[in-house]
Design a protein around this nucleic acid. Structure first.
Length: 334
DNA sequence: AATGGCTCCAACCGCCTGTGG
DNA sequence: GCCACAGGCGGTTGGAGCCAT
């Protein structure tokens, strides 16, 4: 069943591209633009692939930097194998290149660290660890809740990006505009931010009404009565602020922060003072880091400070895993 | 020099979605 | 609503190049 692939049509070339074909494709794209790939003696798919992965003028080739490595790992932890989405956050890298790099390098590196490259969790410890232990089961429940929230946020992101693209006419000649435009702002962080905002608002309401909050399940440390809601908002902003140390993203972070600040003020009627931001950012990150790291420790069976482990190798492996989770949490901080 | 194993990556394949008739 | 088609995306593959034996 199914149609015969267009590449099998009579007279269509297949296989590696020749320099002559590349020249023709370049000339064609310069003359007619990108978006219609029915040219040469190649199927449109093949032309698009060749252009996007090889001929495009703004492609950066060669070794991946440490920053790029970490960004890929962190985005993969959040997005999974959604290479095109990951590629939008790595200027000048193609989804195909990132996918290849992941499969040939990063996957192995994570495996060597004892981390499952699919789930980004320590290998062979998460599922077995519940074992009826209520503490571990509770942590698994936290992970599941977080995962569920993440998926919902991603869905929302996709819907928003599709509608905004359609509204602004971006669908016309989408390929070239998306390739030549500056890197889009860190959608993942925006999603994260929105999740945190919702969590904070829920926490704020709970503070008045009592009960468990979404914020507390995320380990944001918002349960204290001494925190006011504006401070909590500032903490979310601060999360972005301190992640903006990389110059590449700092302008976008500032833009996002400003927008989010405005959004929060509108939503709550409170003003979020700048002086709050860094202070609470540290708190949020520490709380998040401690929460997930402590969760990780629990899951892997380690017990920080217990002194029960005399094995230095195991200790180092645990530390590496903790740093790994810190990297995930500090996404964009490099 | 020949050979076999391994790595890397460009290109292909199959599925899905959007669009227009 | 249905169909045909093009484009997008993620998974997979084939072959070139490298290296050890």
């Amino acid at each position: 069943m199914g149609r015969t692939p267009c590449c099998y049509a009579d007279g269509m070339n297949r296989g590696p591209w020749t320099p002559e074909e590349d020249q023709k494709l370049l000339a064609y794209s310069q003359q007619y633009g990108c978006g219609s790939w029915r040219c040469l003696q190649r199927c449109g798919k093949s032309c698009r692939l060749r252009w996007n992965n090889y001929l495009r003028p703004d492609i950066k080739r060669g070794e991946f930097s440490l920053l790029e490595d970490r960004t890929i790992i962190q985005l993969h932890a959040l997005l999974g194998n959604r290479w095109s989405a990951i590629a939008t956050h790595l200027p000048k890298r193609t989804d195909n290149e990132i996918k290849n790099y992941w499969n040939t390098h990063l996957k192995k590196r994570l495996a060597m660290m004892g981390i499952d490259p699919v789930t980004h969790k320590p290998k062979g410890t998460v599922l077995e660890s519940a074992n009826g232990d209520p503490k571990n089961a509770s942590n698994l429940s936290h992970i599941a809740q977080w995962e569920s929230t993440r998926l919902e946020a991603e869905e929302r992101l996709v819907r928003e990006s599709q509608s905004s693209a359609a509204a602004s006419g971006m669908l016309i000649n989408q390929t070239i505009t998306s390739k030549l435009a500056p890197p889009r702002c860190l959608d993942v962080l925006k999603v994260w931010q929105s999740v945190m905002l919702e969590s904070m608002l829920a926490a704020g309401n709970d503070r008045h009404g009592g009960g468990d909050s979404a914020g507390s399940f995320l380990g944001l440390g918002m349960g204290g009565n001494s925190c006011d809601i504006a401070s909590d908002q500032a903490s979310a902003l601060g999360f972005l602020e301190i992640n903006a140390s990389d110059q590449t993203y700092s302008n976008e972070f500032n833009e996002i922060s400003t927008m989010q600040l405005h959004k929060m003020n509108l939503a709550t009627g409170h003003n979020v003072g700048d002086h709050h931001q860094h202070h609470y950012a540290d708190g949020v990150l520490n709380n998040m880091g401690n929460h997930i790291i402590s969760t990780n420790s629990l899951i892997t069976g380690s017990n920080a400070g217990s002194g029960s482990s005399s094995n230095a190798v195991e200790e180092r492996a645990r530390n590496e895993k903790n740093y790994y989770w810190h990297d995930i949490i500090n996404m964009g901080n490099y």
